[in-house]
């Protein structure tokens, strides 16, 4: 195992985060805080509780998940896309690193950044909304698992993308709608039955449901199913990455 190689990639990516603190940390924290202010403190105080949880507190897991997904995808896709774009990928391809080590470096750094960001957002949310964490271990486990899974997904997008536009398409056109329709702002039990069924095809429902269970002990679907669905998506991403490196898809001609 080329641990020095993994460390080099990891450090390089984390250094990029430090260089771009405003973009990497401040910007998502501020935009998520605006949700807490508007939906938590302002409008939330005029809305009824859901499952005996105040509306402001209810939306916290979903909003954290929104940032976590977006940042995981963005960090990882940008991390691998930039060397492709600038041509510096030659160095990684010619180095004695296996694809597992490359993934550990890039995805590990992207997931670390996302987890740090998620924790900062949770701390910031506390300034605006009062909330509890019933199962701290599971809350953190969901945070880490989701960050890793979607960083892996972002890594795949970064390899697939052949332009900056494509980097944005999936997070903005697919992930954001799925998060908004995945129970961030409501319980899917509140939907008509047909929409409840349709919602179950949205993978983000399981992530938010499981994460919310870790906070308040309530969920739209059983927590075991949430964990299972997340692990299934993680496995699918791992298979895709394995195939990418096996075939050299968009990396080696």
């Amino acid at each position: 195992m080329n641990l020095y190689g993994v460390r080099a990639i990891y450090k390089f990516e984390m250094a990029r985060m430090r260089r771009t603190l405003m973009q990497s940390v401040a910007s998502p924290v501020i935009s998520t805080s605006l949700y807490f202010v508007v939906f938590g403190s302002a409008i939330g105080s005029r809305m009824g509780d859901i499952d005996n949880i105040s509306y402001g507190a209810y939306i916290i897991p979903g909003l954290v998940m929104l940032s976590l997904l977006m940042q995981s995808i963005s960090n990882a896709s940008f991390g691998i896309y930039m060397p492709k774009f600038s041509g510096t990928i030659y160095e990684v391809l010619s180095a004695p690193v296996s694809y597992v080590e490359v993934v550990l470096g890039y995805v590990g750094a992207a997931a670390t950044k996302s987890v740090i960001l998620g924790v900062i957002i949770l701390i910031t949310a506390r300034l605006f909304v009062d909330y509890d964490v019933l199962h701290p271990f599971w809350m953190f486990a969901f945070l880490v698992l989701t960050a890793i899974t979607f960083s892996l997904f972002g890594f795949i997008i970064g390899i697939w993308a052949d332009g900056f536009e494509k980097l944005q398409i999936v997070p903005l056109m697919i992930v954001t709608p799925l998060v908004f329709l995945g129970g961030t702002f409501y319980s899917i039990d509140m939907l008509p039955e047909v929409w409840q069924t349709i919602s179950l095809f949205n993978p983000v429902v399981y992530l938010i449901s499981g994460f919310r269970w870790a906070f308040y002990g309530v969920s739209d679907v059983h927590v075991g199913i949430s964990v299972g669905m997340t692990l299934m998506f993680l496995t699918a991403c791992m298979i895709a990455v394995w195939w990418i490196f096996k075939t050299g898809y968009r990396l080696r001609s």
Binding site: Y4, G5, I9, K11, R16, E91, V92, A95, P96, V97
Partner: peptide, 16 residues
Amino acid sequence: FETVWDAVSFSRGLFG
């Protein structure tokens, strides 16, 4: 955006 030192050190690490 990297410094010369960091870029060269990165390469050494990458090669194990």
